[in-house]
Amino acid sequence: MLRKKSTRQNIRRGIILMMFILFPLTYNFLSPYIIIHGASQGVVNGSFIMFAGLFVSSLVFGRAWCAWGCPAAGMQEALFLAQNKTVHPRKIDWIKWVIWVVWIGIIVVSVVMAGGYRKVDFFHLVRDDFAANAGAESLIRWLMMYSIVTVTIAVMALTMGKRGFCHAACWMAPFMILGRKLRNRMPWWSLRLKADPSACTDCNSCVRNCPMSLDVNALVHAPSMEHSECILCGNCADSCSKNVIQLEWSAGK
């Protein structure tokens, strides 16, 4: 059973590693800068649509994107080989909210100054950066922004510990956390973790294997396995020899 479960984690890690390899092609659609540029031009661009999509997806999948699709996840989990230190989420999780509020404020101000959104262009700036005749200015701008983002992710993961960037600076996480909080108020079916605390032997393998440094054992014994920093990767379920934890579809508030 554990071998079968570990296969799921191998697949998951393979997916996010591939997403990181492809990050140069997808960066423009996840860029914190390009959505601001689009807002200043009154353009609903690819970044805007992607961030809105992450919020909508979280109503059903929670923060599963963070575990199964995020390019930054691929880089950070690869860096576990160099830095596998446990992070203390409560000490740094608030930082990303400050960053997010300031960033959203800049976007709102940019839209207002532009007179509102006037058109939709999913490939806004992407054509300029990847066109065959793209100028040096476009290439330099893209390289600078991409380098800043990737170096920041790597440095934070190596200095803070496991998925340090996710905890302290990710501009995408708040969209999904807010969506998940809304989901938790609704009775619809969604991806969730469920636990049978009576079968738990408190071996803490779930804690050791959590890539987000959560006290999963405490969640097992809590009324529900709900935590805003849980990314529904299933590592805790797949590392439990007693099948205490299940990653499943279920309804409930």
Rank of each mutant, 00 (worst) to 15 (best):
residue 2 L to Y: 02
residue 128 D to G: 04
residue 73 A to E: 08
residue 175 F to Y: 12
residue 121 D to T: 10
residue 101 V to Q: 04
residue 11 I to R: 12
residue 163 R to G: 04
residue 122 F to S: 08
residue 217 N to T: 09
residue 4 K to R: 08
residue 46 G to A: 05
residue 69 G to V: 00
residue 241 S to V: 10
residue 165 F to Q: 01
residue 19 M to V: 01
residue 83 Q to W: 03
residue 60 V to A: 10
residue 69 G to R: 00
residue 161 G to M: 09
residue 120 V to K: 10
residue 6 S to F: 13
residue 225 M to P: 11
residue 82 A to S: 14
residue 97 W to M: 07
residue 207 V to T: 11
residue 47 S to D: 14
residue 205 S to T: 14
residue 247 L to S: 07
residue 142 W to E: 13
residue 210 C to I: 04
residue 107 I to P: 01
residue 16 I to G: 02
residue 199 A to H: 09
residue 114 A to F: 05
residue 162 K to D: 07
residue 223 P to A: 10
residue 165 F to L: 00
residue 86 T to G: 13
residue 102 V to R: 07
residue 40 S to D: 12
residue 86 T to L: 14
residue 62 G to R: 10
residue 203 C to N: 13
residue 115 G to T: 06
residue 182 L to S: 02
residue 146 Y to K: 07
residue 157 A to W: 01
residue 175 F to I: 01
residue 250 S to W: 12
residue 164 G to A: 07
residue 127 R to Y: 02
residue 118 R to I: 01
residue 85 K to E: 07
residue 23 F to E: 04
residue 30 L to S: 03
residue 70 C to P: 08
residue 97 W to F: 13
residue 230 C to W: 05
residue 176 M to I: 04
residue 247 L to N: 06
residue 85 K to Y: 01
residue 29 F to I: 05
residue 188 W to Y: 14
residue 66 C to H: 13
residue 141 R to M: 11
residue 250 S to L: 11
residue 96 K to D: 01
residue 116 G to Q: 10
residue 154 A to W: 09
residue 87 V to K: 06
residue 120 V to G: 10
residue 203 C to Q: 11
residue 224 S to H: 15
residue 202 D to E: 15
residue 210 C to R: 08
residue 113 M to C: 02
residue 112 V to M: 10
residue 105 G to L: 07
residue 81 L to W: 09
residue 135 G to N: 08
residue 58 S to F: 04
residue 105 G to F: 08
residue 227 H to D: 15
residue 114 A to R: 06
residue 214 L to A: 03
